[in-house]
Design a binder for these strands. Sequence first.
DNA 1: AAGTCGGGGAG
DNA 2: CTCCCAGACTT
Length: 427
Amino acid sequence: MSSIDQQQEMTQAETAAFFGRELLGWYDVVKRKLPWRINRDPYRVWVSEIMLQQTRVDTVIPYYERFMQRFPTVQALAEAPEEDVLKHWEGLGYYSRARNLQAGAREVVERYRGIVPDDAASVASLKGVGPYTAGAIMSIAFNRPEPAVDGNVMRVLSRFWLLEDDIAKPATRVKIEKLARSIIPEGRAGDFNQALMELGALVCTPKSPGCLTCPVMEHCAGRLAGREAELPIKTKAKPPRPEWRLGVVVEGSGEHAGRVLVRQRPDTGLLARMWELPHVLVPKDAEKRLRSGSKGAGGKEEAASEQEQASLADQLARMLHEEAGLLIRPLRHWTKAEHVFSHIHWHMDVFEADMPSHVSEASSAAPSDSGSAELGLVAETNGSYAGGGGELPAGYAWIGPEAMDTLAFPNLFLKLLQQHWGIKGRG
DNA sequence: AAGTCGGGGAG
DNA sequence: CTCCCAGACTT
């Protein structure tokens, strides 16, 4: 019979061999020089992979340089104060990564004498190390034939093998891991996994992939079917739920002049253990009544009226007193701040306020709720607070610009504080 | 399986 | 605007 069919059909093994050969040849030529590629120190690889979770290479590079300078070894990281680690993570997001990384470093010091174990199960058991990161460390640092399937790899393999599974589903990652494991070229696991990601980052991009410069385009099933643009298939994420919040810059007076009141967040949950400006959640049933900047009939933003701002300020003072025993005196509406997390959308109105005798008093009476639209009526005293040396509730502190070197703030509040003090962001 | 956890760059 | 990034953890 004619050999046309036999010559054009390739077995899975032949396709995999082609894919690995061409991809590695391409990678050897175009691979980027990145700071975590100067050697294969498992600790350096580990730190880079944690930082790179859901974070672009260009964003990570400066953080990585500073982090490795301050914490050059597993021991250095394990011994450091947690606040120091968080400070070096400031602005990078997903802050549990930093705390888990340090916890993992302490595990390595205690259980493995400071040496990252050349063992997949041991690495995978480290805090903050999931299937992807375990595979990345094992393959890149130790050249072990483990798959490292991230978003790039799922996209590349979905297109090349025309996989129509929904990559948003956890089961799909498991399936693609099996495929990825099966096509690792002998002896080149680390380069292959990095090449796969490099291709996804530089060529096989989410939108308008550069098929004409792709080293494996010739046998890409997605491309051959003219479907590369519709792959991978991924269901849409739910939009973040809106939350309206009232924040405040409380300016200190007397011995605290020039400082601002901040507080540390709880040990768990959103922005755990980070510092922030005080703020309160506007109850859902009060949103309509209190919300400013709502959309008018024409869909345009309407500025809050003086009365509305005063009402918001009154609500802020009352809630801060109820929740923290803090007595503040709102002075004026300062600014609005929008911040979007993956699951929450904050609409924040930020006020300026002072504390006439920088008082906090957990048992004092609530500020008067006269319903008045007038600002500046919330500083009722009950005579029980300590005149000049007012103590703050647990977790609260006065800080000036110089303290910004030691406390870690999420970007939202970092920017507000920098704006308040007229400081420029870091370069 | 679905929700929680940041922030920013690209189109 | 939308998408998604070298994902992990909790429920």
